[in-house]
Design a protein around this nucleic acid. Structure first.
Lengths: 242, 242
DNA sequence: TGCAAAATATGATATAAATCATGTATTACA
DNA sequence: TGTAATACATGATTTATATCATATTTTGCA
């Protein structure tokens, strides 16, 4: 694991207790003493944009807690087409699904921008879950929320046209990463292909629909920057009932 | 809650300790003493085919553990089109997703055949999860498995043609409910519409594809009975990579 | 038991979205 | 800084699947 330490940079001297993400994270309800334990055993690391945190098929040895940056979680489907099904930000943990199932990873995690993470070894994480009821419940809540989101996505994929799903995806990105200081630019850079792989459609279709949204004055496109000009219109286009 | 007791029938004198489903269920790892608690507080009930256990939008007051029978979990999507995303059998519990999220139900549960369930009150269930690490971990494992299944379904909905998804669905039904004594008839009666709502397609498309499978000698159709004649062929048709 | 209603089946048609094709703009990097 | 590679854009075409229509069978139940 030494190489990880060597790669690690600015944030490994930062304690979990003083971590800005602490109260955004699953550890928000964890006991103080347990934070000390995590702090002792965590291994910090940074990944450049495009680097892989873990790959489908590998064995999980712990969970990753994002300190700063953004990560996508995706499957490799037929003929290598990527399906993105989660977007992660600071405070989020990842890698827990496979770990709790006792599986290998069934998804790959790739940094969407330069990202700093703390790695928490499996044994420690499991022990904490055993010992700390607050943490365990928070974990269950998070799993339940993810499950809900996934089930809604199933329904929408089966029943909604791409136009609605694209609108919904843009709103989801907004929910997840928010806006930049200007209050309208989505605070992440995704390629058109990634947007398509999030919506579950062909890249050309995503591009075409984005162009239509632009023509309709709903969004403004500036390279990979996407500005939401008419949030209400977008919400209406998304046609969300629930 | 009296009316529930009045409706309850054959199985409410059965103890959890002697319940045949005990080791199929999330309670397989629960402590003996806790089974006594559940046994004391459980409320047994039966539902006829087509009856609703709970509805989207209602508040969860506990979880349901299926003693015998079959239940579908589904969303009501646009224009009332149903999307089925889970099939449950004896030993399965349901209603935990909303309960753990602190949400209302986001899905409805309907009996696919006459079904006997034990209702476990929320407070008890939550206390057990707090107190019994084995149970809590089993719960997390189950949530993680469900999440995995849902994520795979998302990828397949986005990327696979209906023919493959129908084949996959038939295999999933087989995994869940198994065969009847003859070893080839799927051990559940679903309408064509329900099959379509499981696959995520139009009813006519499901019917058409089933007819094709029949013409190809892969299945035999006898009303709602579906016999799998060529399981290997079906597996090939499903084109599953993972 | 018979009859209406619902479910199943199948053909014809429409349509959303994928694919193919090609051009233009960006980006990477030698 | 120029050039190749990649991403983006948009039109043309094809295709899978939904929708519509209608016949037939099954089911519920009066």
């Amino acid at each position: 694991m030494c190489y990880i330490r060597e790669m690690s940079q600015t944030h490994d001297h930062l304690t979990c207790q003083s971590c800005l993400q602490r109260f955004n994270s699953v550890f928000c309800k964890a006991k103080e003493a347990n934070l000390d334990l995590i702090n002792d055993q965590k291994v910090c690391n940074t990944y450049r944009k495009g680097q892989t945190l873990f790959n489908e098929g590998a064995y999980p040895f712990g969970v990753y807690c994002i300190n700063s940056g953004k990560v996508k979680l995706s499957h490799q489907g037929d003929e290598g087409k990527e399906q993105i099904f989660r977007l992660l930000k600071s405070g989020d943990i990842l890698g827990y699904r496979a770990l709790l199932s006792g599986d290998r990873y069934t998804a790959s995690a790739v940094a969407l921008e330069d990202t700093a993470v703390c790695f928490i070894p499996k044994e420690l994480f499991v022990n904490l879950l055993k010992e700390d009821t607050g943490l365990a419940f928070e974990m269950m809540r998070q799993l339940s929320d993810e499950l809900h989101r996934a089930e809604m996505k199933i329904t929408h994929l089966a029943q909604k046209p791409i136009r609605e799903r694209l609108a919904e995806t843009l709103l989801f990105i907004k929910e997840t990463y928010g806006f930049e200081e200007d209050g309208i630019t989505l605070n992440v850079r995704l390629s058109r292909e990634e947007i398509a792989n999030l919506v579950g459609t062909a890249t050309e279709s995503a591009i075409r629909l984005l162009s239509e949204f632009k023509k309709d004055g709903i969004v403004e496109l500036e390279g990979k920057k996407i500005k939401i000009l008419k949030a209400k219109e977008l919400l209406k286009t998304a046609n969300i009932q629930d």
